[in-house]
Design a protein around this nucleic acid. Structure first.
Lengths: 184, 184
DNA sequence: CATTTATGTCAGCCATGTTGACATATTCGA
DNA sequence: TCGAATATGTCAACATGGCTGACATAAATG
């Protein structure tokens, strides 16, 4: 459980910047948060990007691999629903992931029209490697910011469109259940 | 200061999911945080996307407009450095923003090779409209998650690559100073 | 058996990133 | 003062990953 750099709230940024008066328009624009979100996300996806270059994969491959890893035997239609892309877009990257042996398809048992997707051992290894990089970033950020993991979860959750939150929670819960079930 | 929905920690997601044993590999992958970050960012940039459609602009236009708005009279080279794209990529969207009257260029006073960029009134209005949308999302998220704004700032800041943090802080501070100086 | 569903695929377009090469104007240092 | 360095623009070509529209196939379903 040893962590890279446990020191709460060292060298924090600005944040005493807003509220000079009573604007009629409402709230002061939160430029600081907006820009921090932009840079944070860029670095968050940057880690995996470097690894993916090894296989000539891009971010699209990462997303597909990740969600197939998290939802073994997922139907194509459900994957499209998570990613919010078209099947033509999915087809391109999925084909490459299958050709290179990271993902495999099997015919559905109950409904033989379905092509259920799952990661191979190779795919699992890569998905885990990428998840670990991002996990380390979160662990660092939580430790160094003096936040709790729970606060971070609640904050990010509340950044999601209210009407989609339930779906997201359900999806994550279900994936956790499925994965724990498998690994036992 | 009245907010949309002030209720701390209502309907929070899971988060009691990790730590089943002592893996030799280290930490449990933080799937929940990883996926929440993905969905949060998608919605975060989704708000502006809809508005930008009105002008046939994309996210690239948004980024350029935003940072030019925040850094009046910015040099092209400095803008490229913030965005981390090539000048050829910038040129395309910048041309459209200039043609449609959102941004204008002026020759540098001290160095006449420079083409200093600034938003027009029209550009400022659009930049503010977009920033306001994202500000509202943050205000909602902070109120509903029971976090403080300061915690959110520190957390996002700590998500950035350590070696880039100083630059980001400096950039934000400087932009705040420049904008406040102008509005007085 | 006709229709609906799940998936695949072809073709082409668009947005936004890239590299490489080269042009122009201006500044700056020897 | 002149040659090199700098700031910017531009042309051409390419890659990635979105999109729409059209159509094909196999299987399920009423």
């Amino acid at each position: 459980m040893a962590d890279i750099n446990v020191s709460p709230a060292q060298r924090r940024p600005l944040s005493g910047t807003a509220a000079s008066g009573t604007e009629p328009a409402g709230r002061e624009p939160a430029y600081e948060l907006i820009e921090l979100m932009f840079f944070a996300y860029r670095d968050f996806v940057g880690d995996p990007d470097h690894v993916l270059e090894r296989y000539q994969f891009g971010r699209a491959h990462h997303r597909v691999l990740h969600f197939v890893f998290r939802h073994p035997e997922i139907r194509v239609a459900d994957l499209l629903d998570i990613l919010k892309i078209t099947k033509q877009s999915l087809a391109r990257v999925l084909k490459e992931l299958i050709d290179q042996g990271f993902i495999l398809q099997k015919e559905g048992q109950v409904d033989r029209r379905q092509r259920l997707l799952a990661v191979t051992d190779k795919g699992k290894a890569l998905a885990l490697e990428l998840a670990k990089l991002q996990t380390e970033r979160f662990a660092r950020a939580i430790a160094q910011s003096g936040t709790t993991r729970d606060q971070a979860v609640r904050f990010l959750y509340a950044m999601i469109d209210p009407e989609r939150r339930e779906d997201v929670t359900r999806m994550i819960t279900q994936a956790d259940r499925a994965l724990r079930g498998k690994e036992r």
